[in-house]
Amino acid sequence: MARAMILRLWPALLLGVALAASAAIEVRHFDDPALQRRYATLTHELRCPKCQNQSIAESDSPIAADMRDKVAERLEAGRSDAAIRDFLVRRFGEYVLYDPRLTTRTWLLWGLPAALVVLGALVVALIVRSRRRGANRALSADERARLDELTRREERS
């Protein structure tokens, strides 16, 4: 019942959210389409320091608006993406990078997935090796006798 209602209201809800978002965040136009693309990419990979988990492109907090202004200013002034990221990191810390750089503080973050893949491969290799060895192993005298006994019993019945 409630679900049907939500489904029916869904388009209206979506429209409401879209309107709210467009009301809060300004539309910025660059004459150069390349700058426009870099602006979109940069603002989506920079994290709003005030918010829990939003990029500065998505957040309507005042600090995110200030950061968008600075990014746009710097793009127009011909700064590189790396220089713009540096400019913000110097003020707000590595926190603002959604794509953290490889440094002494972040090597664990970057290294752990690779280390886990290597570890997994090692475990698989060990298992395969021990299975193969187990399959090729000859039966001991006791095992041979027991197997003979079992097959004989099977044949009799």
Binding site: P49, K50, I63, D66, R91, F92, G93
Partner: peptide, 12 residues
């Protein structure tokens, strides 16, 4: 204009 605040990394 919040320029000094921005250079200080103030977000609230």
């Amino acid at each position: 204009d919040g320029d000094l605040g921005f250079d200080l990394g103030v977000y609230g």
